[in-house]
């Protein structure tokens, strides 16, 4: 499903070149729940940005569903993001002026669904995250956990092939974090591929596979060793 080969990402200024990813290679199969961990500055977020088509790669190849992403123009990349990828962000990234219904509606409008289809999907996904009674509420009227559930509902409403979660529990207390992770596990069990970027080792255990990133590369060592070494360090 997702296949990155020797992907590099270099940020350049007039005087400095920063290699955020170096020869980064990763394959994720359909239906997997993969966690991507690593220390701060290791390139996790850069990987997520490239995987989610939020940024261009500098070198290498990236295929999503067998399609070479590096050859797509901005409009095509937007369409792939909209149709195939669902995003869950650390800070929820809900639009504060829009109520829950309208927030979930945002990607569906870009998809071009008619009003009835959008309504059906919005209600279904909000019900699924257990916030059916809060559709007219503004994000500020919800708790952090509820806001993240809305973000998940927004990500799911378009029925994406895979979810990209960026520190999805980073702003939540442990009880809310567990509830969100349970929800992600349910979604994965239903067949959606999930890639979750996190620096919390405990969360990585909830994934079926853990990828450890260091210095912009996937580490060859087994995840268990990393966890053990990180715990020891």
């Amino acid at each position: 499903m997702l296949n990155m080969k020797n992907v590099s990402k270099i940020y350049r200024t007039d005087t400095v070149e920063t290699h955020a990813l170096r020869e980064f290679s990763l394959t994720v199969e359909e239906g997997e729940f993969v966690s991507v961990t690593g220390p701060s500055g290791s390139g996790k977020t850069t990987f997520l940005n490239i995987a989610g088509l939020l940024e261009d790669l500098s070198d290498g190849t990236y295929e999503l569903d067998g399609r070479d992403i590096s050859k797509l123009n901005d409009k095509e990349r937007s369409r792939v993001r909209n149709e195939k990828i669902g995003f869950i962000f650390q800070s929820f990234n809900l639009i504060p002026e829009l109520n829950i219904f309208d927030n979930v509606d945002v990607p569906l409008r870009y998809r071009g669904f008619n009003a009835a289809e959008r309504k059906r999907r919005i209600e279904q996904s909000i019900e699924m995250v257990g916030l059916g009674s809060r559709m007219q509420h503004l994000p500020a009227q919800l708790s952090g956990g509820q806001q993240q559930r809305v973000a998940i509902a927004r990500a799911l409403a378009g029925e994406p092939r895979f979810l990209l979660a960026d520190e999805p529990t980073g702003n939540l207390d442990s009880q809310m974090a567990d509830s969100v992770l349970d929800l992600l596990a349910e979604i994965n069990a239903a067949g959606t591929t999930i890639i979750m970027v996190t620096h919390e080792l405990g969360l990585a255990d909830r994934a079926r596979r853990n990828i450890f990133v260091r210095d912009g590369q996937v580490s060859d060592n087994a995840p268990e060793l990393h966890l053990a070494s990180m715990a020891a360090g």
Partner: peptide
């Protein structure tokens, strides 16, 4: 917010 909209699939013309 504009970045979020772009991430969610908004094209530049959108």
């Amino acid at each position: 917010q504009i970045g979020i909209r772009r991430a969610l699939g908004a094209t530049k013309p959108a």
